[in-house]
Design a protein around this nucleic acid. Structure first.
Length: 399
RNA sequence: GCCAGGGUGGCCGAGCCGUUAGGCGACGGGCUGCAGACCCGUUAUACUGGGGUUCAAAUCCCUACCCUGGCUCCA
């Protein structure tokens, strides 16, 4: 199977460290609000990759985090007058509801940043010992220059914006916080440097390495995490172990609303739970898989309606195909569609093309004028259910 | 600067190597007291420029130009 690696910016054959075993880490949400359809796109696409690899006999170790230590959580909790952890717990529970409604397989393990603070402290200490970190002002910074500089994922830093607020204390413009002193009223953790809070990038390194080892096969996230988050992670991990942290970096592109990026900071978001009030999870899943994960995806009511029609057509065709009962036979026509489906999946998870194959076959199959033989067509619909994770069995989408 | 996706007839927009998609508008006709709606036909063998591959390219490759989205936090 070919996979697009954000490091090489090309498609590469997937070769894991251990045969038939994939160590994968997916960047999860910061839990201060409900999950939106951008999160859904990330988790659904990884879920399809996972199902596809498992169908080929791989064991997939899938670790996913919840960032529950974050300034935004502190702020939101203060607004609502609740404890930060109470707020985080609540949105983690809501997130699982969305995950289940979208038929996303549960990760092998979910981790929470708050439970990894001792490991984060240990990493910070080791980086200080190695001379890749320093204390300045009220924080401990990672020294990007001393660690060899960026370049894993970002090829040119001319467009990279530097956080000037921190510029005073930092030695280098790209240095980032590993640990900082807690401020008044913040939830804090004890450390050799007093009560404080961990930096964001260290979390993921601590959680992934602790559960999957020093080198990951796949690290997946939204493309907004490429810089600075994943670039920082990569450099930090390399400084710690001397090894290349990740073999395949995978990033899905954004969901667009009216031609522009959907983003929490601009308030232009669509929540998963709001879509699910009007459409079943299968329809949203069909929409999210209608394009390859690396393409920008336009979201609108119209797209949702289209997806509903496409889903209904697949479901009708599946019912038709299964009426004949199981068979070992496979007609040449179905064979072509099966080849198209799996050929698309092998090519960097081209779910849009795979879905197009299913749709074209469904149209032909449902057409009373078609004289082609569709023996064995049910196996394509089995693949839609088991690999694309779109259930075709029961509930009508027109509730 | 870097990453991604695009540039198709007046406009929008499919196709993505080999039978002029389709829609809107405009124009002509039918229907109608006039107009609208509706129906028929015409506009229309169009694919940003330049190379290349091929028997064959809008479709593949290279190159130039232009447009869009993104590059602090964010999936």
């Amino acid at each position: 199977m070919l996979i697009y690696n954000s490091r090489s910016q090309t498609k590469e054959e997937l070769i894991t460290q251990e045969p038939n075993k994939v160590r994968a880490y997916v960047c999860g949400p910061t839990v201060y609000d409900y999950c939106h359809i951008g999160h859904a796109r990330t988790y659904v696409n990884f879920d399809v990759l996972r199902r596809y690899l498992e169908a080929q006999g791989y064991e997939v170790l899938h670790v996913q985090n919840f960032t529950d230590v974050d300034d935004k959580i502190t702020m939101r909790a203060r607004e609502e007058g609740v404890e930060p952890m109470e707020l985080a717990d609540r949105f983690i529970a809501k997130c699982f509801q969305d995950i289940d409604a979208l038929n996303i397989k549960r990760a092998t393990k979910y981790t929470r940043a708050s439970e990894y603070v001792p490991k984060i402290i240990k990493i910070t200490q080791r980086l200080l010992e190695k001379g890749c970190a320093y204390r300045a002002g009220d924080a401990i910074y990672f020294d990007v220059e001393r660690a060899g500089g960026f370049g894993e994922l970002v090829k040119d830093l001319k467009g990279a914006v530097v956080d000037m607020l921190e510029a005073g204390a930092k030695r280098g413009p790209f240095d980032f916080v590993l640990w900082r002193e807690a401020r008044e009223g913040e939830e804090s953790y004890s450390s050799p440097w007093g009560m404080g809070r961990p930096g964001w990038h260290t979390e993921c390194v601590a959680m992934s390495m602790d559960n999957l080892g020093e080198v990951l096969d796949i690290h997946w996230g939204g493309r907004d995490l490429i810089y600075p988050h994943h670039e920082c992670e990569a450099l930090m991990a390399k400084a710690l172990t001397g090894k290349t942290f990740v073999r395949y970096w995978m990033h899905n592109d954004f969901i667009l609303l009216g031609g522009e990026k959907m983003s929490k900071s601009t308030g232009r978001t669509v929540l998963i739970r709001d879509v699910l009030k009007r459409h079943p999870g299968e329809v949203l899943r069909t929409l999210l898989l209608s394009k390859n994960y690396r393409e920008q995806l336009e979201f609108s009511e119209e797209e949702l309606e289209d997806s509903k029609e496409r889903y209904d057509r697949m479901r009708m065709a599946a019912r038709e195909a299964r009426r004949a009962g199981p068979t070992n036979e496979i007609s040449p026509c179905v064979k072509d569609y099966v080849d198209m489906f799996f050929g698309a999946m092998d090519d960097n998870l081209e779910t849009g093309q795979a879905l197009a194959a299913v749709e074209n076959m469904s149209l032909e199959l449902l057409s009373s004028y078609s004289e082609k033989d569709f023996a064995g067509a049910s196996r394509i619909f089995d693949a839609v259910e088991n690999i694309l994770g779109i259930k075709l069995g029961h509930s009508m989408s027109t509730q």
